[in-house]
Amino acid sequence: MTDEPSTAKSHAARYFAELEARIVQRLHAEAGSETSRAALVRSTGVEDPQLIEELSKLGITADELICLRFIPLVLVAWAEDHADSEEREVIQAQAAKLGIREDSTAWLVLETWLQKQPPGLGIDAWKRYTHGILKKMSRNAANRLIHLTEKQMITVAKASGGHLGLGKVSHKESTMIDRLLTIMHEQAERA
């Protein structure tokens, strides 16, 4: 006697894994094209060839570039080794505020990061992206962006309530927030 629900679940899991693999393959193919790299340079103004190469390896095209803005929020969500549903909802709400639609590739990239922790390459790309963006801003605008990112990270951390209850920021989340803010301040200083 076979366990039909279990078999159906494994078929569904396999189907979605294959679908995800095809989507990732398509993203990488699109991002790796010269046209896509040129669009990244145009849309960001970033002329750092290493950053453009890393973005291409990550499958990031100009349309998905906005996702890098969410790396700090995603890392805070993953600070305790999992991104829970409340944290994901807060990040999705922030993405929707910036105009990222659920049917867009950018949403798919963000969803992937919320399901699986972003690779170190993504963090390195975020650092260089942040440096490139902050270097073009006035000191006042850079400080406002850093402050906004801090508020968003705290909102994500408070969404799950930490270990001790609603609205608390855990030690790991606080450490991650401090680390990311330090990186942003250092990038602003170098700009």
Rank of each mutant, 00 (worst) to 15 (best):
Asp3Met: 04
Ser6Thr: 15
Ala8Val: 14
Ala13Glu: 15
Ala13Trp: 01
Ala21Glu: 13
Gln25Asp: 05
Arg26Ser: 14
Arg26His: 11
Ala29Glu: 06
Ala29Trp: 06
Ala31Pro: 11
Ala31His: 12
Ser36Glu: 14
Gly45Asp: 12
Gly45Tyr: 08
Glu47Val: 12
Asp48Val: 13
Leu51Cys: 06
Leu51Ala: 11
Ile52Gly: 05
Ile52Asn: 04
Ile52Tyr: 03
Glu54Ile: 11
Glu54Phe: 09
Lys57Trp: 02
Ile60Phe: 03
Thr61Glu: 02
Ile71Glu: 05
Ile71Lys: 00
Ile71Cys: 01
Ile71Asn: 01
Leu75Gly: 01
Ala77Trp: 00
Trp78Tyr: 08
Asp81Thr: 09
Glu86Leu: 06
Arg88His: 00
Glu89Met: 05
Gln94Ala: 14
Ala95Arg: 03
Ala95Ile: 04
Ala96Ser: 05
Ser104Thr: 07
Ala106His: 09
Trp107Gln: 05
Val109Leu: 07
Glu111Phe: 00
Trp113Thr: 03
Gln115Thr: 03
Gln115Glu: 11
Lys116Gly: 01
Lys116Ala: 06
Lys127Ser: 07
Tyr129Phe: 15
Thr130Tyr: 02
Leu134Tyr: 10
Lys135Thr: 15
Ser138Trp: 05
Asn140Phe: 03
Ala142Phe: 12
Arg144Leu: 10
Arg144Ser: 12
Leu145Ala: 11
Lys151Cys: 08
Met153Arg: 10
Ile154His: 11
Ser160Gly: 14
Leu164Lys: 01
Leu164Val: 12
Leu166Thr: 09
Lys168Pro: 00
Lys168Val: 12
Lys172Asp: 09
Glu173Cys: 08
Ile177Cys: 08
Arg179Ser: 14
Leu180Phe: 10
Leu181Ser: 04
Thr182Leu: 06
Thr182Pro: 00
